[in-house]
Amino acid sequence: MWQWLKQLYHRMGSPKWFYEITERWIPWLAIVAGVTAVVGLVLGLLYAPADYQQGDSFRIIYIHVPAAILAQSAYMMMAVAGAVYLIWRMKMAAWVAKVIAPIGASFCLIALLTGAIWGKPTWGTWWVWDARLTSMLMLLFLYFGVMAIQQAMESEDGSYKAAAILALVGVVNIPIIKYSVEWWNTLHQPATLTLTEKPSMHPDMLWPLLIMLVSTYVLFALLVILRTRNEILWHERKRSWVKKMMES
């Protein structure tokens, strides 16, 4: 197992190998993401029963929750990739970390927008300083910080390292921010209706959510791969394998 992991790691470090292997993965990932999205949305929008309190507006859950979960784990992945670059100087890891930032921020934005829209029928206003929405907003700010420093640094290596350090500091901070925001929230508005917390979800409601979650993760993998391939194409443009590929 260990040997296999080590081998995989060394292969992942080769841009050429990554570029060639993902060529074959892309159609499959696209199919899986598309099919699960269609199945999840049809089940969620057409077959899941309406919520007894919120009515049909709860159907926003099928994009809001997967986007929110993904936005948080994408930040972790970005930090891990950044750490791999800091420690082992693996170029591929730096490119992956770089491309995750805008994608993660996009999903964070989706979670915030859908949360705000969902708030209108539930609470009567577009924005409530609810614990989850507030900590998503803070996460979006953290993403903005990483993207800002990526663009500000003059040297490429410096931008990768600075973004990685900032992402790692952010990862240590995320649980503290989440905890403090939740604590602050219970202080100021005790026991309001939360959007997604349910004692137990009906299976007909839960299944589409799980399917959408899978779909979101696969879509995320696809987007990361597509953008990483562009990074490879740009950085390796003077290598012979890229030139050979272009000529054939």
Partner: peptide
């Protein structure tokens, strides 16, 4: 969508927009 059509479709529309861009 049981009177919530505006909110549901606005959410899904914006999401579609952002995903399409990505």
């Amino acid at each position: 969508m049981g009177r919530h059509g505006l909110y549901v479709w606005l959410s899904y529309g914006l999401t579609a927009l952002i995903v399409t861009y990505n």
